[in-house]
Structures are given as C-alpha cells and as structure tokens.
Amino acid sequence: MSDYESKAHNVYITASYVPAADLRLSATVAYNKAEASLQEVAMPGVEDRLEGELEDQDFTFEQMPLYSDLDFELINFTLGFEYVLSPQVTWTADGTFGTLWDYAPYVYDDETGAVFVVRSGLRIQL
C-alpha cells in the first residue's frame, strides 16, 4: 500500500481601468502550481515465501515512486488596451506572456517552455 498525493492551486487577478472615455486598459495575472507524488512503497517481506537465494533481486524499489512525480509551475501575464480613434474605429492591442517550469521532467522529457503572443488590430463599426 502507498499514498498518492496531488495538489493543484490556481490564483488569478484581473483589473480593468478606464482613464478616459476613449481609452480602456486591462491586465490579468494567472498562476498555477501543480504537484503530485507517490510515497515510498514499503513492500512486504517475501523471503519466507521463496526458495533459494535472492541475492540478485532488489525488493526495495527506492527509485520507483519517483516515476510518478509531477511538479509544474505556470504563470501568465496579459496586458491589453483599446483606444477609440473615431466613433467608427477603435485600435486594440494585447500581449500575453506565459511560462511553464517543469521541475520533474520524466515521461515527456523536460516540458519547460514559454510563449509570447502579441496581437493588434482595428475594430471598425460599419
């Protein structure tokens, strides 16, 4: 028997600010932390159920629980604004930066990575 434990925490904060009638600003920060692990497995003794020597066998499995370790941290920042150029045209822009840390790479190798996306355009009222 063994205990498998997993924890996940998600926190977010968003803010929207309208300093003037023709300008709107927004920002979001989101953070995620996820961990999972298996406690060391204590296998029952088997010597009394087997015949002969067991010098070649290792029943401690000290490393085995580590196979299941997961440890990720993810943070996302988003900034955006909208500026009214005229009653029909609004300029919008936003940028997102996200980064993920993989502290326990194993099954899929190291999944640490980052993404940066910037987007801008004009919204036209026809």
């Binding site: 990720f72 993810l74 919008t92 996200g98 980064t99 993920l100 993989d102 899929y108 190798d109 190291d110 999944e111 640490t112 990575g113 980052a114 993404v115 940066f116 996306v117 910037v118 987007r119 801008s120 355009g121 004009l122 919204r123 036209i124 009222q125 026809l126």
Partner: peptide
C-alpha cells in the same frame, strides 16, 4: 442592425518546449 469587423495580425513566439505551454495554442 449592427456590423463590426476586426482586422489585425498577431505574432507568436515559443521558447523551449511548446508542447505543454501551447497545448491548445
């Protein structure tokens, strides 16, 4: 009646592994 269009572009840049951070991007 109301019609609006948004015309723009975006730029995306991945660093290191894109597989998890951009799983659905």
């Amino acid at each position: 009646e109301n019609l609006s269009v948004w015309l723009g572009s975006q730029y995306t840049d991945f660093q290191d592994s894109p597989k998890k951070i951009g799983e659905y991007d």
